[in-house]
Design a protein around this nucleic acid. Structure first.
Lengths: 380, 380
DNA sequence: TTGAAAGCGCTAACAT
DNA sequence: ATGTTAGCGCTTTCAA
């Protein structure tokens, strides 16, 4: 537990020379010890460490950065929301970054922020980071009118193709289209004629990806592609969209681009007297912690934020430390739907329902429908 | 839109001397311009800015920090979770920090992390931050066995009393007990004989605060204080606790320490055949975005994360920049409950219910109970 | 209003 | 295995 004593406002912080003097070695040797370089005898190392401990020495990172040209820090550009996706990704990133010995600097972008991602990246560059992570970018670069931002450190983009130009650009977690496919196919397999989509804001790559996956799947199966309803990720927008969808008797299955919207949607359906999953099936995306506990428990596509962050950062750090090596290849995590109680076969396979509530009230009114897990929530 | 051109791997980054030479001034003058110091003629300023633009100059922060002894950065210690509270607070902090011109460094602590908060603070100190924000600390310092960590920069603690010793320690957002009181009194006002509490993990100051507020309120009203059930903030733990509470026919009102647990709790009650709010009223805490859209819409105590972060940081920055001045006073934001449809008078005022479901089925089975907002979700 | 000189505390390169 | 010598690019004196 080496821990600074905190000089009580008095004497200035000790420097490596002070440690060197006390240990009877040169400054360079102190540097060697603290950088874990080789060629330091066990005895000298011990003496240096003791001297440092005694003085309460901690090395000055600014001086280190200035002399070495590296800050040993990684910057993250993330969206200024507490949305489950971005927040989880950020936490995952922090964890891995710390493990790799880098410091983390964070800059937010807000939707509608004029400076946008370019401004955020720019400010990180000002701070002198060694690498940059752009998490879940939305595209507003076009609005800037400026040419695409050029960056001279490696960049990792999470959940999207890259919005910047850099010598090394890596991506991870951009397989949302495949996951959307799994969701859509699940509903088709249950017998639904087609699947409606409650999309996320189309400025987000992540939202477009999910929409693409959904559309492609329907087309591949020869189904009609119904008009898209767009939300803003919030439960409130899902609720608003749900009122529209509830009014359309043809809607028997909806794939929502995230769980929050799915929850708002289910609420609107309930208010309109359309039961989930009996009349309408709903699939979400993310697997937020409450998903298993809403009514009915939500079938959804879990995202593996930790895995994505870890995988991506491993490659980013590799790129930072081996500028001339070939970047490590990406490997996307597998897709697996979590089936709970918000999905079921359509109300009437042969005669599509027209108007609301035709031939319903037949099955149990309990919100937890029959399924693999019998309506019992699945903690995850 | 001053933006680095990104030298294509070739020429080294321009320094302030280069700019000075091109502008025909001294290095110091360039420094003056970039630091917005006074005593620079408009003409010289313009020439310097042009030269800088032309060269794609951006100043070196490491050198700046080394020369000035200040990093112009603030460190945040936060919990490594995507929990709504901590995540929202972090986002709020980032927003304000950026506005004040400081950079943000983030370090997580995980529950059960041996190094804990002390280790996190220590690593920020290593990075040379000018101030530290500790968000929603849990207490594990005792476990370290070490004396309390001493820090020589100002510290702002969010949502708790301070776990560290520093020359300046500020706190903000630690009024959870008052908010818990509002929740408890709301239920008593509805006529409930007493209120049960589904608490958060007691290692968290925030959880203990809410529990204290609840207990104090019951005592002040002369009510019996029922045994506490403890969860871990998750909907899953709320669900588990809910099974217990549902089995106890005396339970007519529960105050949960956060919304996620309240949602899990409501699910468990529904599964047990106890209707919310008809048989049991539930109040949450936080006002997460989905709270208005679960079934039934949840009555809860909203937290004003942005206000807390803003208020706290204003004071922290003041303390950093005026080390010898008296710290600015705290001002806690007001409390206001959001009443939705998960609370109602107890099922039978005069004869307490024994066993389950006595005298129920009387009111509408619709989950949205009668209330100010008529069961219509209130977007926030 | 501007400039010259002297470090800030470390690491890099080259001895030894 | 250890020491010496130069800077890294800026801000801080102090002069002018």
């Amino acid at each position: 537990m080496t821990r600074g004593t905190g000089r009580g406002g008095a004497s200035p912080a000790p420097r490596s020379v002070d440690v060197a003097r006390l240990a009877g070695v040169s400054q360079k040797t102190v540097s060697r010890v603290f950088n874990d370089e080789q060629y330091v005898s066990a005895d000298v190392r011990r003496r240096v460490l003791e001297a440092a401990e005694e003085l309460g020495y901690r090395r000055n990172n600014a001086a280190r950065a200035l002399a070495s040209g590296r800050t040993r820090s990684i910057g993250v550009v993330t969206l200024g929301t507490a949305l489950y996706g971005p927040a989880s990704l950020l936490m995952g990133v922090e964890r891995v970054v710390r493990d790799t010995g880098y410091a983390l600097r964070v800059v937010n972008t807000m939707e509608g922020d004029p400076a946008g991602i370019a401004g955020a990246v720019d400010s990180l560059l000002d701070q002198g980071v060694d690498g940059i992570v752009v998490s879940e970018p939305i595209d507003e670069l076009a609005a800037g009118g400026d040419t695409a931002l050029r960056v001279d450190v490696p960049v990792l983009v999470l959940g999207a193709p890259s919005p910047v130009v850099a010598p090394t650009v890596l991506t991870a977690g951009d397989g949302a289209d495949l996951m959307a496919r799994a969701a859509t196919e699940h509903l088709l397999d249950l017998g639904h004629a087609t699947v409606h989509h409650l999309a996320g804001p189309q400025a987000w790559y992540a939202a477009r990806d999910r929409l693409d996956g959904w559309r492609t799947t329907l087309t591949a199966h020869g189904r009609t592609v119904p008009p898209v309803v767009e939300g803003d990720w919030s439960a409130a927008s899902g609720h608003a969209a749900g009122r529209e969808l509830a009014a359309d008797g043809d809607v028997t299955a909806v794939f929502a681009a995230n769980d929050d919207m799915a929850i708002g949607l289910m609420r609107a359906l309930a208010e309109a007297g359309r039961r989930v999953p009996h009349d309408v099936s709903v699939v979400g995306f993310d697997d937020v912690p409450v998903a298993a506990y809403v009514t009915p428990p939500l079938t959804t596509v879990p995202q593996r934020f930790d895995a994505v962050a870890q995988e991506g950062l491993k490659r980013l750090v590799h790129a930072i430390e081996n500028p001339d090596a070939i970047p490590l290849p990406a490997s996307d995590p597998p897709v697996d739907l979590v089936v709970r109680a918000s999905t079921a076969p359509p109300p009437n396979r042969t005669a599509p329902v027209r108007g609301r509530a035709a031939a319903s009230r037949s099955r149990s009114a309990a919100p937890t429908a029959p399924h693999a897990n019998g309506g019992r929530p699945t903690p995850n």
